[in-house]
């Protein structure tokens, strides 16, 4: 069973800096970590491998520094790490990201299952997983909280819903996105850390994966961020006091004065 886990670099702090021209997050200046939901995806990938055999490869699209994060995945039992990095990928929205990842995954090839975290903690869109499945033409299930069975060409999993869960069967290859209820990610081991120190992350640029640059980065992103801002709370509420009758009269007078309502 060959498993590919998609991981994203996210800012490790809440102190995020924004590029004023592109309105995207400045990633190389922030302290980056693996998106916490992706830690569960990595753990699940490694658990499946330990159960049924095979290999786990992590893939990410990001700045060169992301390679260091991918090493952390090697330290917890992942076999290979691939980083897609190119100026052409800068400013990607979820569509361009899933395109680039799909091209990278096609280059790796021979996969049975792709595991993603349900969403990233920076954008919170939860779109890349399903979008990636569309690009690859394979089925997907989101918000997986448990894999009940997995074998050659078949997976049955529990998909978390607001009021319980659904049991979903799919043929493989397929994409799943996982929620934090699925497992408890392990800590690295010393032997794993020593291995990860020596490991060389495979680096691919847009040309290496045969990506059409018009579909990458800002060019390939129909989502254009026009403006980013921190919402300001400048509404000062007024509390109307008095008896119920006085309050009602007071409120009605104010609404009339502001011409929100009219007297017939």
């Amino acid at each position: 069973m060959n498993i590919i886990v998609c991981v994203k670099q996210v800012p490790g702090t809440t102190d995020v800096k924004i590029n004023k021209e592109t309105n995207t997050i400045i990633r190389d200046e922030a302290d980056i970590i693996i998106n916490p939901f992706d830690e569960y995806a990595i753990e699940e990938g490694v658990r499946i491998k330990e159960k049924v055999g095979g290999s786990v490869t992590v893939i990410s699209m990001g700045i060169p520094k992301t390679a260091e994060l991918l090493r952390e995945a090697i330290a917890v039992g992942v076999d290979d790490a691939v980083l897609l990095t190119d100026k052409a990928f800068a400013g990607s929205d979820t569509l361009a990201t899933s395109y680039a990842l799909s091209m990278g995954i096609k280059k790796i090839g021979g996969y049975d299952l792709i595991v993603c975290g349900k969403q990233a903690t920076d954008g919170d869109t939860a779109q890349v997983g399903p979008s990636l499945a569309e690009k690859l033409g394979v089925p997907h299930t989101t918000n997986v909280r448990k894999i009940e069975e997995i074998k050659e060409g078949y997976i049955r999993c529990q998909r978390m819903t607001d009021d319980g869960f659904e049991v979903v069967e799919m043929p493989l290859p397929a994409v799943i996105t996982v929620v934090k209820e699925i497992n408890e990610p392990r800590l690295p081991s010393i032997k794993g850390k020593l291995k990860s120190k020596k490991y060389e992350v495979k680096i691919f640029n847009a040309d290496d994966i045969g990506a059409d640059k018009s579909l990458c980065g800002l060019n390939g992103s129909p989502t254009q961020v026009i403006k980013t801002f921190t919402p300001v709370h400048d509404i000062n509420g007024e509390i109307i006091e008095g008896t119920a009758g006085e309050q009602a009269k007071n409120l009605a007078d104010k609404l009339l004065a502001m011409q929100f309502v009219k007297c017939k």
Binding site: L187, P188, I190, K191, G192
Partner: peptide
């Protein structure tokens, strides 16, 4: 168990 899994 955590110590064991971490090789410590």
């Amino acid at each position: 168990k955590y110590l064991a899994d971490s090789d410590l």
